[in-house]
Amino acid sequence: MSIAIYIAVMAGVTYLIRMLPFTFFHREIKSRYLRSFLYYIPYAVLAAMTIPAIFYSTGSFVTAAAGTAVALVMAWFDLPLIAVALAAAGTAFVTGIFF
């Protein structure tokens, strides 16, 4: 299938999600359950996207696992996003020299 069609669908759906409530809605979501669900969704999506895919992200399980470990520790100490991301890559690169 043409990649242009994929991109059009991606862009269309993403735009509508942002545009419709911003333009036409004027009420607030009252349901506590629904608000809770929407609160947790980003975390759940990111976790499901990251694990186990991260272990395949560098083409080598060993380098990816090393990068993941460093990222987890740095994220735990609340270091900036970009520092965590680049340290993970740096670790994977250095580990890759040895394995």
């Binding site: 992200s57 380098t63 270091l79 994977a92």
Partner: peptide
């Protein structure tokens, strides 16, 4: 060797987003 290692960048960023709140919120 460099692009392989860079493949982890985005996931590293995701980890940096979803790990810090874990310290404060069991949920």
């Amino acid at each position: 060797s460099v692009t392989d290692a860079m493949g982890i960048v985005l996931y590293g960023m995701f980890i940096a987003i979803f790990i810090p709140p874990v310290r404060k919120q069991k949920s």
